[in-house]
Design a protein around this nucleic acid. Structure first.
Length: 131
DNA sequence: GCCAACGTTGGC
DNA sequence: GCCAACGTTGGC
């Protein structure tokens, strides 16, 4: 099982939208590095939803429930998406500031490259965020 | 509102 | 294939 962070602008699609939908296709990725991360996902992986913009915090978790498949919002098969199912909100949202000051989390890709919309976590990092 | 970081585009 | 110019994103 792998862990990931999915970045989203809450005015576009937010954690509460996922809570309402229960399940969604995570579409619209148009960056090769992010797409490659999507393609590396397998069912059972855990994703954390990060709100960019005014919030700048990780707010909740979701589970990958499909293999990656061609993003239906893009022509052809160049771009990929996965299906996600909502899990739980974090007991305590983790702000970007808290990540950057955390001894383990400060080096995660999200902290180093805030523009990458899909980024990996180690198991250890994922476990820290989940508790 | 500004700017740094990054990705993309296009001229050469 | 290189690199300057430009657009976009997101943190501050």
């Amino acid at each position: 099982m792998k862990y990931w962070i999915l970045k989203t602008e809450p005015s576009t699609y937010s954690w509460s939208d996922l809570v309402r939908d229960k399940k969604t296709a995570w579409t619209g990725i148009r960056n090769y590095q992010a797409r490659n991360n999507i393609r590396a996902m397998t069912p059972g992986d855990i994703c954390f939803i990060y709100h960019s913009g005014a919030e700048k915090q990780i707010v909740g978790s979701a589970k990958v429930v499909s293999a990656s498949y061609p993003d239906p919002t893009a022509p052809g098969e160049a771009w990929s998406c996965v299906d996600l199912e909502v899990l739980t909100p974090l007991k305590q949202p983790i702000t970007l500031a808290a990540i950057k000051s955390h001894p383990v989390l400060k080096d995660i890709t999200l902290a180093r490259n805030s523009r990458l919309s899909v980024s990996p976590l180690t198991e250890n990092e994922g476990a820290i965020i989940f508790r």
